[in-house]
Amino acid sequence: MTALQRRLRQYGHLWFTLPGLVFFSVFLVYPMLTAFRLSVVDWNGLGNESRFVGLDNFREALTSVTFYRAAWHNIVIFLAILVVQHTIGLFLAVQLNARPRFMEVYRTILFLPVILSLVATGFIWTLILSPNIGILNPFLSDIGLGFLAQPWLNDITWALPSVIVVQAWNHLGWAIVIYMSGLQNVPRELREAAQIDGANGWQRFWNVTFPLLSPAFTSLTVITFIQNIRVFDVVYVLTGPIGSPAGRTDVLGTLVYRMAFGAAGVTSADIRFSYAIAIAVLIFIFMLICSTGLLYGLRRREVEA
């Protein structure tokens, strides 16, 4: 056996990674590197004229009101959904974890929205909220609560809360199953010991169970952050690429899309490919910093059973 053959044999396994590596490098890593390169030029996406502009695109984004408004909406959506996940989601997980009869049926139903596409989810809620064909407003007026009727998605005040409700409806299943798998790691003996010590139900939950759920709390928080910093589909389907009404539901995802590909009310002269990429790079950096920070901060408070 020659040295080369031995060498090949020794690393024989690694050859198996090659086909995957090709796809991964060409369609994921290379575009990623290109994104950094394109973010420092001035390019409209067509032709090959591109002028190096350094950090101008970033400077422009970071001084633009539209950018901060979109980022603010992302943060509001994230925080609102976070609250829903950690309250309603946790509460439902605790109920399911008590193993009531039909537990499997309940869990299957409550997790169902997660597997629906956000486009389908958007249409499901268009049917409920639309001022045109919506069923909520006629229902409210028929039961004598007509004064509560709103043009939900077209209303300056109610559009963003409506988007949040829809996104929360689709994502709640994550909280339920993540907390359920966390609850399975809470030893029964610990809760029983606390009971013997005279702790009531709430004390047992707050002082024994909840601290042991901290790993679930951490992963759910980080997942929710990543999901909502990237939110796009729901907004696009419900209120369109310009985040109607009057940009009240505009998020970073729709901003990038609009800058790169245009939308109603955006002329082709406004299309700025490399500016859009610069914003996407900013989202990436922001996401990386925040999720690392969240992970680091939340891991420190985790306790072991």
């Binding site: 369609f27 990623m32 290109t34 994104a35 394109l38 910093i229 990237r230 990038v256 990429i277 996407a280």
Partner: peptide, 13 residues
């Protein structure tokens, strides 16, 4: 890797 960041270079590629 967020899809928003690679989608435009991917388009070009």
């Amino acid at each position: 890797i967020p899809v928003q960041m690679i989608i435009l270079p991917l388009f070009v590629l």
